[in-house]
Amino acid sequence: MIFKRRVGTLSVYLLLAAFAFAFLVPVAMMLFGSFKPDDQVLVQAARSGSLLPAEFGWFNYRDVFARVPFTRYLFNSAFISVCIVAGGLLVNSLAAYAFARLQWPGRDWLLLVVIALMIIPLEAIAVPLFYEVTLLGWRDTYWVQIIPFIANAFSIYLFYTFFLGLPRELEEAARIDGAGPWRIFFRIVAPNAKPVFATVAILSFLTQWGALLWPLMVTHSEAVRPLPLGIATFYSLPPLQWGDIFAFGVMMVTPVLLIFVLFQRWFVQGVATTGVKG
């Protein structure tokens, strides 16, 4: 019996280890490859199976800074992502609150539209959207990369479901205490909805950080282009140097990792309902 259970546990762990290995290998390859001379990046890994660099150096990183304006790309990506995340948290949470709690004509119908919008991918509307921003004269700016992505159906939906689960009495108590809808939202609802704010922030940040198609369509100068377009230039900029690409990749992923570590405490915190019974 005990033996059987142990074998069961062992096989589960082996399976998990195999998955973890499969997921970690590309990341490890990127990390170690970024410190290897170009000729060793692929060759050595394939030949000896060893990931660790034979000779270690920062040369690929220096190369990246020499070949492309990395800091510019980094700033652009950070600026665009932060604007979208900050604006998105405000706009989408307010919209969701209106859907979840306020009474207004057409509310249920519009909510259906929002839910339906979730299934439309950017690729499907990229061309009409492109015409629209061209008409507005927004091409090759920050705004063209920010404004279309602030309002987001999926974020609204996430906020909406969370707000529905918040105890209504908290808001009623605040109403009786004399707070209006804005105050109720900012002083009572938002502070008790940290987990969903964190979730939406992480999800939308990740999406924007990796965005490639839209910036490629609407920007052409390096002054406003984000990191994914930066890394893409390496593929068209001969000679093809994998070490540089890996170094760029490491520098592109690190901020995301940091953000995730920073927010994950809230991410896993769960629903805060401690003020209400129990």
Partner: peptide
């Protein structure tokens, strides 16, 4: 008017 709710509805934060 002031009200005491069944589940108290204290502001948790």
């Amino acid at each position: 008017v002031a009200m005491v709710f069944q589940n108290y509805a204290l502001y948790p934060h």
